[in-house]
Simulated assay, not measured.
Amino acid sequence: MPDDATQIRILITRWADAVHRGDLDGVLADHAEDLVMYDVPAPHHGIHGLAAYRAAWPPFFAWQASGACFDIETLDVTAGEDVAYAHALLRCATPGELAAHPTLRLRLTFGLRKEDGRWLVAHEHHSFPHD
C-alpha cells in the first residue's frame, strides 16, 4: 500500500480529474460528511456539510463546459498519522482568461483526516489572488 502522502496525492488528483470531467460523484468521493469549504464565489461564510458541497458544484460544471481547464500544476502534501494538509496551484480558466492573464492560478488548500484507515477531505479552501 502506498504511504499516506502518496494516498493523499492520488485522492486529490482523482478529485481534480472528476472536477474536470464534471463527475459529481467523483468530486464527492473521499469527503467527510461535516466538510467545510471556503470557495471563490459566495457564500462567504463557507459551505458546511456534504449536501451543501454537492449543491455548489453544478454552476461550476456549467461554466467549465464552456471550455475551461482545471489542471493541477503543483501539489504538495504533508501527512501525519491521522491528519494531513495539502496545497496546490491549478490552471482554472477559459482559454480567453488564460490568454489575458497567463500566470493566473487557482490556489487550493485541503485539510484531511484519517477515519478507519481512510483519508477524507474535511476542509477545502479555493481562492484566486487579488491583483
Rank of each mutant, 00 (worst) to 15 (best):
P2D: 14
P2H: 04
D3C: 10
D3F: 01
D3V: 01
D4T: 14
D4A: 15
A5R: 12
T6D: 14
T6I: 15
T6K: 15
Q7E: 07
I8P: 11
I8S: 04
I8M: 13
R9M: 02
L11F: 04
L11H: 06
L11P: 01
I12C: 01
R14N: 09
W15F: 14
D17F: 02
A18C: 11
A18H: 01
V19I: 00
H20P: 04
H20D: 11
H20W: 08
D23G: 09
D23N: 09
L24G: 13
D25H: 00
G26H: 03
G26T: 04
V27E: 00
V27P: 01
L28A: 12
A29F: 01
A32K: 05
E33T: 01
E33M: 05
E33Y: 00
D34Y: 09
L35T: 05
V36I: 14
V36P: 06
P41A: 02
P41G: 00
A42I: 02
A42E: 00
P43R: 15
H44D: 07
H45N: 12
H45S: 07
H45M: 11
I47Y: 00
G49Y: 00
A51H: 11
A52V: 06
A52H: 13
R54Y: 09
A55K: 01
A56P: 04
A56E: 04
W57Y: 13
P58A: 00
P59Q: 04
F61I: 10
F61S: 12
F61M: 08
F61C: 13
A62Y: 05
A65I: 06
S66A: 06
S66V: 06
S66M: 07
G67S: 15
A68G: 12
A68C: 10
F70K: 10
D71S: 15
D71E: 15
D71R: 14
I72A: 06
E73W: 03
E73S: 01
T74E: 07
T74L: 06
L75E: 02
D76N: 03
V77Q: 08
T78K: 15
T78C: 14
A79D: 14
D82F: 03
A84M: 00
A84R: 00
A84Q: 04
Y85V: 05
H87I: 04
H87R: 08
A88K: 03
L89K: 02
L89V: 02
L89R: 09
L90H: 06
L90A: 05
L90E: 02
R91H: 06
C92A: 15
T94Q: 10
T94L: 13
T94S: 12
G96R: 11
E97L: 11
A99N: 09
H101M: 10
T103W: 13
T103M: 11
L104Q: 15
L104I: 13
R105D: 02
R107K: 13
L108Y: 08
T109V: 14
F110D: 01
G111I: 06
L112Q: 07
R113S: 07
R113F: 10
K114P: 12
E115K: 10
D116T: 14
D116I: 15
D116M: 14
G117H: 07
R118D: 11
R118N: 13
W119C: 03
L120I: 07
A122E: 01
A122K: 02
H123R: 08
H123N: 04
H123T: 07
E124L: 12
H126A: 11
S127Q: 02
S127A: 04
F128H: 10
F128S: 08
P129H: 08
H130R: 15
D131E: 14
D131Q: 14
